[in-house]
Design a protein around this nucleic acid. Sequence first.
DNA 1: ACACGTCATGGGAACGTTCGCAAACATCAA
DNA 2: TTGATGTTTGCGAACGTTCCCATGACGTGT
Lengths: 333, 333
Amino acid sequence: MAVTIREVASAAGVSVSTVSRAFTAPGQVQPTTRQRILDAAAELGYSANPAARSLRGSGTGTLGLIVPDIANPFFPPIIKAMQARARHLGYTVLVADSDEREADELAAIAAVSKRVDGLILWASTLTENRLHELAGRMPLVVVNRHVPGIPEVRISLSAGIAQAAEQLKAYGHRRCVFINASRAELSRGKSIQESFEALDLSLSELGPYEPRFETGVHAATLVAAHEATAVIAHNDLVALGVLHQMANLGVSVPRDVSVIGIDDTLLASVSTPSLTTIRIDPEEIATRAGDLLIETIASTTGRTGQGRDVAAPFVEIGSRLIPRASTGPAPAH
Amino acid sequence: MAVTIREVASAAGVSVSTVSRAFTAPGQVQPTTRQRILDAAAELGYSANPAARSLRGSGTGTLGLIVPDIANPFFPPIIKAMQARARHLGYTVLVADSDEREADELAAIAAVSKRVDGLILWASTLTENRLHELAGRMPLVVVNRHVPGIPEVRISLSAGIAQAAEQLKAYGHRRCVFINASRAELSRGKSIQESFEALDLSLSELGPYEPRFETGVHAATLVAAHEATAVIAHNDLVALGVLHQMANLGVSVPRDVSVIGIDDTLLASVSTPSLTTIRIDPEEIATRAGDLLIETIASTTGRTGQGRDVAAPFVEIGSRLIPRASTGPAPAH
DNA sequence: ACACGTCATGGGAACGTTCGCAAACATCAA
DNA sequence: TTGATGTTTGCGAACGTTCCCATGACGTGT
């Protein structure tokens, strides 16, 4: 039904091999011949069948990306950016989500693993052993997870948090609250605690809760009890819950209380008041993670062994404060 | 490197064909033999290579979904739901976005078309001719677009809009404004106009603008000039812009003005005040569109001709009002 | 003029699977 | 017992591509 390489070959008056080379190794075929082939291909509407191509062993041309939750507004911009980057490099991206459950993550991996050349696992719930086993079978990059020997993209919030602490300090805040809603053992709290301590700001930690809007609603009622004038939330969604409840309580943001989110999702820019937040650039993370995976793929296909003994590469992604309308001077007490 | 069907065959002491059948046509192989094969496969960690499988002609087991913008919060829940549905039916979903530009849409289609058994095109920017041509080459379902002869999922806002009009009427509103921010010629406005007229509500249309937050901000300043007490926006994002600007202007929502969005994205449920909006169930639309595509695929592979003359199926998805805090009684004038 | 590398091209096996065909065997009615 | 029928299995071609190897054609240095 579809037009194959053979038809292009006979149309251009060359052999199948030459057509193949015209596409995959342009330098190896004479320019005039190549042009003739390209013309014939265009006329017939030919494009290579990826299934056949990958069967012969040259990879699938697809990257796998498994995120905790596609519907979490943090991820779509990252997915979008990675798609764009990948397309630019001749790859397609296959996305799936794990719902932060090991069983679902395994199912997702099973569904995509045979169709991709490599996998990016975001905040994987898998054990180290399983991850190592998987990394032995295919190129792997982990994000938001540290496993010795596996290439990694690390997101560092410290720069953004330091800027947030600085801003609050400059605005005269003394007592702050952090709403911890992280599921992972490695909470964002530690880094925050350090930054605030360094500036002599008192920080109480609430939680851990689930990372939901209602968490913010609930936590907002506790802020007054801590005599805090600033709140930093686990993410934008939780921060919006705080904003919501503050409005209900008649507490003005930012006049009475300042609120800071994390992630700079769409939510932050369209809330009322708009939300000061800590941004992690989705394009940067998509680009770096994608490139790292492609690199890993290249190095795996190159040598026979995967060189497990050499140090696995890692890249660190920074963050920065996006000041908006939810932070301001501390109220005079 | 990976374990193939041949190894499973020799491990189970049967031929390659029998292993193949054990997976694809369980009824055709004797239960005891089948069990032996399954055990061997499990032990060896075998799973079929999709590339080889699709090469022989039995489809790729993948569905393509092309949406205008992955980062638009309306789509992620739909994508997620479709993934879940597809996985349940043994399919994988490959998502790409068109950025609402024809060139990008064509690029996206080119990138995925060879990897999928069929395509769902959301709000396609392609001409009817191109769509027909594409539909001749592969199973196709369009959403939010009407093309005679092509299977279609239609989203009907009329039920939700009628409910919205009812609510506003009951609350005593008389003059309303609709913010049109649709790019397509077929705006949501016509349906709205009709519903409001039917209830004797005056409706002024603003725009058309771009569907952005700033559009809402801008349009909010025009509402007073129309002496309107209720605003219905093209989508939640625009409605949030209205909410934002109303707060800036010192206009209270819903005391002075009621605001209604469309789509029921995450934005609507977490705004302050929470946004009354018209919901289109993402799961329903994902399920119906996915099922329709699979049906189309099945009917195409079945007969040789695609039966273009028979009426293309279409399914209609309803909508309903989700009342929240942004609507309330009209102010006494 | 000769051997020799270089370059462009063609031939054909191989990738892992499915599927049409036929063989082997069992079952059953006449 | 025999032929017909049905069930289970095996054989081998085919899917569309890549890539190793072979084959000429063409300089180039001796």
